[in-house]
Computed example of a mutant assay.
Amino acid sequence: MDHHIIVGLDAFPESAAAARWAAREARLRDAALHLIHAEPWPLPLGIPAAASDARRGWAETVLQEMADELRRAHPGLDITTQSVDGPPAASLATGAATADMLVMGSRGLGSVTGFVLGSVGMAVMHTTERPVVLVRSGEDALPHETEQHTRRDVVVGVDISRPCDALLAFAFEEASRRSCPLHALHSWPPPQFYGYGSAYDPGMLARINQSATTGLDQALRPWRDTFPTVEVTARTPMGHTAQQLLEAGADAGLIVVGRRIRRSLLGVRIGSTTHAVIHHATSPVAVVAHD
């Protein structure tokens, strides 16, 4: 399979930041970059054909201008563009079916800090099983080394109660490419009635923490062996998982979280931790689907 990265492009600053992030990622992976703009079709009744032609011309201009900018910044990078008619979520998911990853911009609105993921982004997340990376416009304000991401750390949230090989493979590979540390985090909730009378038992908390530490070490061990040059730190704090990840990843180059693949009539569900991280993180977030 040829390595390539898909970017969903529109006119918003977050989209441009996503394209620039994806170009740096493509250089790291020695992969091609494919920019896609999807236009809903058919247009609502009453909108003349001339308006449709104008929209197509605008889309081609947006795609070409971004491609030209990225070619200047990354000479030799294989960049292609495509404007498609159809539901944006379905079009992006189809384009990403054989890609290394799909990269999209995600927007902070007004005084809200962090990601505000729109209906298209959420629908894509529900549709594709490829890794999806969400990038905010603030990423463009950070300094970057020539032709690659800054060497900020990678943070991964690990649920030791479920298989997570796909999640850890992605996180270790990203840290290896960047030659940066990887921080693995598994948090556990305080026991019920924690802090009340006999339920406050430091020995019990120590036993829970030791069990979590052992479980996380076991999950990481084969990946440490596979990527011996990656510097790994593992933490098992007590507390809310999403809050712990947001704090640990505040200055990270990438936060990696998981989404379980569910092939049923109930559809796809994004867990509460991943949902909170993608809506409130300020760093780029990779959502990795796994069994």
Rank of each mutant, 00 (worst) to 15 (best):
D2Q: 13
I5S: 03
I6R: 01
D10G: 07
A16Y: 11
A22L: 04
A22W: 03
A23F: 07
A26N: 03
L28V: 04
A32L: 04
L35Q: 04
L35G: 01
I36V: 12
A38G: 01
E39C: 15
G46F: 03
A51C: 10
A51V: 14
R56C: 13
G57E: 10
M66N: 07
D68V: 08
R72E: 13
H74K: 00
L77T: 07
I79G: 06
T80S: 08
T80Y: 02
V84E: 09
V84R: 13
D85S: 14
D85T: 15
G86M: 08
P88H: 07
G95S: 05
G95C: 02
A96F: 02
M101D: 04
M104T: 04
G105D: 05
R107K: 12
L109D: 09
V112H: 13
V112W: 15
V116K: 11
L117C: 02
S119Y: 00
G121W: 02
A123E: 07
H126R: 14
R130P: 00
P131Q: 01
L134K: 04
V135Q: 03
V135Y: 00
G138N: 06
E139W: 15
A141P: 07
L142A: 09
L142K: 03
E145Q: 10
E145C: 14
E145H: 11
T146K: 14
T150C: 15
V154Y: 00
V154Q: 11
G157D: 06
C164K: 02
D165I: 01
A169F: 06
F170H: 09
F170P: 06
E173K: 09
E173Q: 10
R178T: 06
S179K: 12
P181N: 06
H183P: 03
A184D: 10
A184G: 10
H186F: 07
Q192K: 14
F193I: 11
Y194A: 15
G195P: 14
G195L: 03
Y200I: 10
P202H: 05
M204R: 15
A206P: 07
R207Q: 15
R207T: 12
N209H: 14
Q210H: 12
T214E: 12
L216E: 09
A219C: 10
L220E: 05
R221D: 13
R224I: 11
R224T: 09
D225H: 09
V230M: 03
V232Q: 06
V232L: 08
A234I: 10
M238F: 09
M238H: 06
H240L: 10
T241L: 04
A242S: 11
Q243A: 11
Q244D: 13
E247D: 13
A248V: 04
D251K: 01
D251G: 08
I255E: 05
G258H: 01
R260E: 01
R262N: 14
R263L: 06
R269W: 12
G271C: 01
G271P: 03
G271D: 03
V277I: 06
I278M: 09
H290K: 02
